[in-house]
Amino acid sequence: MFMNTKSGFITIILACLVITTGYSQGTSKSNFPSSGWLSFGMRSTLSTFDEDGTGLGFGGQFRIKLSSRVNTDWFGDYISINVSDKVRSEYYHIGWSVVYYPFEQYQYPRLFQPYVLAGHCFDYNKKTELANTANFKDRWGSAVQAGIGTHLNLSEKFDISFTCQYMFHLTNELDAEINGNNVSIVEQSDNTLQGHLLSTISFNYKLCRLWKK
């Protein structure tokens, strides 16, 4: 009986229009511009799965966002590791990573924005005996790193990022050989691929847009 009335027919047509319009709208995109942003921040890093042991680091980074899907991260940090209370192992890293966002819809105002990253850095290691600072060795080298992470977009311009990446050292490592109170620091002769797992928390603020496209 409903279908036979003119008003019922019009109601059904309108209902269909509303429903299909809802579907065609898809996921609403943020109006916040996504590319060209320059952001600065600071970071703290936990180094694990290193032959030396576990260490804590401090550093900074700046980011240049190329598009809604691709970002670049330019970083520097300093990590200090205590080796059996006898040796201090210090790492300095300066490098860069490309950050790729696999899910374009996950950006501000969404809270979590996952990403994968990979890059390269220059890596300096110095190992020093604590009780005798004249007993030290150092080496320069390079490394590659790759991993995953996520931004926590707390506001339009501020985010906290969590990253977990493994860094492979492309160089001969230094070893601290400890035998009682005797400490010797030697360079490994074979170049087996070694590295460490770096878990980083960073705080970033978008300062300005370098371009407006």
């Binding site: 260490g55 804590l56 200090s80 590791i81 205590n82 209370d85 201090r88 604590l130 009780a131």
Partner: peptide, 9 residues
């Protein structure tokens, strides 16, 4: 949290 790694740990 942190560590002093100079002279004595």
């Amino acid at each position: 949290m942190g560590e002093h790694n100079y002279d004595i740990h």
